[in-house]
C-alpha cells in the first residue's frame, strides 16, 4: 500500500511537469493541444544528443554522481534540451497554430495538433530509429527504506521527485511574486483584457510556449531516466497528461500538479483491486468520477 502510494507520487511528479505546460496553453489559447506530449519526446531526444556531445567533448564530466545514475554532462544537457524544446514549441506555433488561430475555430486547432503530433513523432522515429534507448545502461538499484512493510526507493526517483517539486516551487514563486507572473496569469485569465492593460500579448504567448515546452522537456527527460526513451513517449503519455490537466481543472497550475499526482497514484493503487490488464482504463474512470462531482475539475473555474 505505502509502496504503491510512493510509486504513484514518483510517477505523478513526471506527469505534473507535463500537465503544467498543457494547462497553460489550453487555458490561454483555448485549445486542447494533443501535440504537447510530443514535446516530451523532443526534450528526451534533445537531451540524449546533447549528453552525447558533451560527454564526447569533455569526458571528465561523464562520471556518474553516486548513487544516482546521473552525470554532469546529462545535467548540462537537460538545460540545453529545455531551451531547444521551448524554442521548438514557439516554432511550431509560428508555423501552424498561429496561422490557424487567425482564421479558424478551436476545433481546427485541436485536429491540427493531432496532425502535428503525428508528424513530430514520426520525424523523430525516422531520425533516431524505433528502438528503445537509455541515458545510462547501468541499473540503479533501489534502496530498502523499510523491510516490513517492504518499501523500496530508487535514488534516481527521489532526485526526480525533488527536482520536479523544486521546479514547481520556483514556478509558483514566479507566478505569485513577480510582475511577469501576474502578467502571465492575466493573459491566461483574459488575453484581450490583459492586452488592454498593456501586456504585450504576443511576447507573453511566446513565453507560455517556452515555459510549457521546457517543462515538457524536463518531464520527458525524467521519464527517460526512470524508464526508457523511444519515439512513442508522446503517444504513451499524452493521455495521462491530459487526464491530469483536466482532473486538476484547465487553467489551474496547481490543479495540474495535483492532477498529475492523482493520476499517478490512482494507476498504481488500482492494481491492489483489479487485475493489471485493466490498469490503463482506471485513471480515466477516476477522472470521470472527479468530473461528476466537480464538473470543472478539482481547482478549475467555470468559464463560458
Amino acid at each position: 500500500m505505502i509502496q504503491h502510494l510512493l510509486d504513484g507520487i514518483l510517477v505523478g511528479s513526471i506527469l505534473s511537469l507535463g500537465a503544467i505546460g498543457l494547462t497553460l496553453v489550453m487555458h490561454t489559447l483555448r485549445f486542447a493541444n494533443f501535440s504537447h506530449a510530443e514535446l516530451l519526446s523532443v526534450g528526451a531526444y534533445a537531451a540524449l544528443v546533447f549528453d552525447g556531445i558533451f560527454g564526447a567533448l569533455y569526458p571528465q564530466i561523464r562520471s556518474t554522481l553516486d548513487p544516482l545514475s546521473l552525470t554532469w554532462s546529462l545535467i548540462l544537457a537537460i538545460l540545453f534540451a529545455m531551451i531547444v524544446t521551448g524554442l521548438s514549441a514557439i516554432l511550431i506555433d509560428k508555423l501552424v497554430f498561429r496561422r490557424i488561430r487567425e482564421k479558424g475555430d478551436e476545433l481546427s486547432m485541436v485536429f491540427a495538433s493531432f496532425g502535428v503530433a503525428m508528424v513530430l513523432r514520426n520525424l523523430i522515429s525516422l531520425f533516431f530509429g524505433l528502438k528503445s534507448q537509455l541515458f545510462s545502461n547501468d541499473i540503479a538499484f533501489a534502496i530498502v527504506i523499510s523491510r516490513d512493510p517492504m518499501i523500496l526507493v530508487k535514488p534516481d526517483q527521489v532526485f526526480v521527485l525533488v527536482a520536479a517539486l523544486m521546479v514547481m516551487l520556483l514556478f509558483h514563486l514566479i507566478l505569485s511574486r513577480t510582475t511577469f507572473g501576474y502578467a502571465l496569469q492575466a493573459v491566461a485569465e483574459n488575453p484581450v483584457l490583459a492586452q488592454i492593460s498593456g501586456v504585450n500579448l504576443s511576447r507573453m504567448l511566446k513565453m507560455i510556449w517556452l515555459i510549457g515546452g521546457s517543462l515538457a522537456a524536463l518531464s520527458g527527460i525524467f521519464y527517460g531516466l526512470n524508464n526508457q526513451i523511444n519515439p512513442v513517449i508522446g503517444r504513451d503519455l499524452v493521455l495521462p497528461i491530459f487526464a491530469a490537466t483536466i482532473a486538476g481543472g484547465i487553467g489551474s497550475v496547481y490543479g495540474a500538479v495535483l492532477g498529475g499526482f492523482l493520476v499517478g497514484i490512482a494507476s498504481n493503487l488500482v492494481l491492489m483491486i483489479l487485475p493489471s490488464g485493466y490498469s490503463p482504463a482506471v485513471p480515466f474512470l477516476i477522472i470521470l468520477g472527479v468530473l461528476i462531482l466537480r464538473p470543472n475539475g478539482i481547482l478549475g473555474e467555470a468559464r463560458a
Binding site: V96, R99, D105, F111, G115, V119, N122
Partner: peptide
C-alpha cells in the same frame, strides 16, 4: 504517417472551417 499528418495540417491551414 508524416504525410497523413501534413495533409491534415495542410487542409486545416488552407480551410480551417
Amino acid at each position: 504517417y508524416i504525410m497523413i499528418g501534413m495533409i491534415i495540417v495542410g487542409m486545416l491551414l488552407w480551410r480551417p472551417q
